[in-house]
Structures are given as C-alpha cells and as structure tokens.
Amino acid sequence: MYLLVPNEVLLACPVCGSPNLHDKLHVQDKSVSQETFIIQQCLACGFQFTNPRPDAASIGKYYESDAYVSHNSAAQGMVNRVYKAARYFTVRRKVALIKRLNGGRQGHLLDYGCGTGHFLAGAKKAGWQVTGLEPNDRARHDAAARVSQPILETSALAKLATGSFDVITLWHVLEHVHALHDTLNQLISKLKPSGKLLIAVPNAESLDAQHYRQNWAAYDVPRHLYHFAPAPMQRLLASHGLRLIQTLPLVLDAYYISMLSERHLAPERAGGPLAMLKAGYKSNQYAAQHGGQYSSLLYVAERADAGR
C-alpha cells in the first residue's frame, strides 16, 4: 500500500544547522506503506534523520495499523505479547526511577506522548499527580480510561502552567516530533527549576543498528523522523540550555528491536528466537564494553542553571 502524502524536505541538520548532508541508508516502511525513505546524516555532527519526510498534517496515515501497540492496547500477535509482558516490569522500574530522581518523593509528572497510559497509571497509583498528553485519538481515549482522568491533546502543552512539573518524560516519543526545537522549548518551560527531563530514544550507533542496517526496526520510517545517538543528543540538549546528568541503558530494547528486525529480513536470512536472543545479547555486551552504546538510551537532563 503506497500513501501519496505531502512531503517536506529539510535543507540543514536539525541539530547543528549544517547544510552538509549525505544519504546514508534507504529504508523501507515495512509496517504500513511499503514505501522507501532516505535516512540522511549530517557530515558536521553525525546526526541522522529521515529526509524527505511526510509533513505533520499527513503523517497520521502512517500510524494507521492495528498492530501499532503504542496506540492500541488490544494489539495481538507474538511481538505484541512480548511487548506487553516486558511493559509490566518496565513500568515499575520507570516509576521507581522518577521517584529517585525527584529526591525520593512523589511530585507532579507530565508524560508527553503517553500512548495508552500504562506508565501514567503506574505513576498515579504510586502517588504522583499526573498529566498526560497524546496526539492519537484511540490511544488518548484508552489512556483516559486506564488513568481515570482526561488525557489532553499535545496542542494543550502551551496552555500548561509554567514551571509546574518535577519530572517530564518522553518514552520513545521525541523521534516522532516534527517541531523538535519548539517542543523542547515548551517542555523545558514547564519544568520546575530543579525538574528533570527524561528522553528515551533508540540509539542509531548501537551494535544491533550496525548489524541490521536498513532492516533495523528502530529506524521505523517515516514515523521516526530522527535517529539519535549520544553525541548529537548531548549537543541538542546543550543548545536548549540543558545539562545531561545521566545516560541510562534500556537493555530489554535490544531483544525487542532485534525480534522486530529479524521479521524484516528476507525469509532466507531471518532466524528464529535464538537469532533474536543472540543479537540482543551481543548488542548489550558490546555496549557494556564500548561506552554504553546500548540499543536504546534514556537521557536524564536538567536546566544548566538548576540549583544556582
């Protein structure tokens, strides 16, 4: 199925502004449209991004799949069953993490791009005052029922009170956001002076990204507009007056992404569960020995002037 939608072309790197770009990979959207998209890389800072890309008004068509588990809690199949099983454990870890980062106490939490609301529900149950923003209608309604409170559209971000949140989280969300800099500016303005911004994204410099190349499921074009790595991410955060205080591994992602990537391979190359487990294990082992280049990373940042 090919989707003819308006595209937009970026003429410069979204992170450093350099116009020196080159085509790195051609990647097929194997989830929805079967179209092929170009991933470009900035020759100045190394940042990778999908270019051209569907514009913000049109990209919703590329999310129209019942298998897209982030927007549909009823999604079925082996991959989604694994995702849901892992989510049970990761939600508890996430809630414990934000409490630790907030000095061992509950506070006010904003989850931007909250999906179907499982993390929000876990945080609320643990005593947090929670606010969720989500652009997808189905996911937003699902989350509202799960959290037992209204979930807002992402456009409501501008109306939230300045300096009102102890923690703001984006769990695999920033790679989807067209208005990258405007959104970061608005999110930062909603943080309390000592608040923490948590951004979880795939790492395009991980071993599993190198292994699967154009079949790496975390490229997820065109839904993933940006393909982050530690150095460009740190540069992006610094450009917004943020200080990176911690980078944490998301070790389960290596197995989940490898499982999805194996499904993208041609039948004669694809392996079974053993191949997925081997790829995930090797990726995590490599990361442990090579500067923490895990399949996905969680960046924890605060204002550079925090505490002054």
Rank of each mutant, 00 (worst) to 15 (best):
N215T: 02
A301R: 10
A238R: 12
H118L: 03
E262Q: 15
L97T: 01
K84T: 00
Q76K: 13
R243I: 02
M259G: 03
H227V: 05
G77D: 12
A74S: 15
T116I: 14
M78L: 12
L236C: 11
H22M: 05
C45W: 04
I39M: 07
F228P: 07
R81T: 12
G113W: 02
N80V: 01
K24E: 09
G241Q: 09
A209R: 05
G115P: 05
D182E: 15
Y226K: 10
D208P: 07
Q186I: 01
S155C: 01
I188H: 10
L109F: 06
S18L: 10
G104P: 06
I98C: 06
R140Y: 03
S164L: 03
L43C: 01
V177K: 03
P202Q: 09
P6A: 14
Y294G: 10
Y212S: 02
S206L: 04
M1L: 12
K190V: 05
Y256S: 04
A123Y: 01
I199D: 10
S164F: 04
K125L: 05
T131E: 00
V173G: 08
R243G: 08
A144I: 08
A275K: 13
A266K: 14
L110S: 10
E64Y: 04
P232G: 08
A86N: 02
A179E: 15
R92P: 07
E153A: 12
H227S: 07
L21Y: 07
S283K: 09
G115T: 07
E302T: 15
Y219F: 14
M78D: 08
S295C: 14
S239F: 08
H26K: 14
A218N: 02
L109K: 06
V82L: 15
N102P: 13
G17A: 13
A254F: 03
A279P: 00
G117I: 06
A44Y: 04
T154S: 14
M233R: 09
A179N: 15
L160N: 09
D111K: 13
P193A: 00
V300T: 14
P19G: 02
R146E: 12
S31A: 13
I98W: 04
N136M: 09
V201A: 10
T162G: 03
A218S: 14
G104Y: 06
P232C: 03
Y88E: 14
G271H: 02
H178V: 01
S296Y: 06
G115F: 02
S206N: 04
H290D: 05
A121H: 05
S239G: 13
N7W: 01
A270V: 04
Q149I: 02
I199F: 08
P267M: 00
L180P: 01
R308F: 01
E268L: 04
A126M: 06
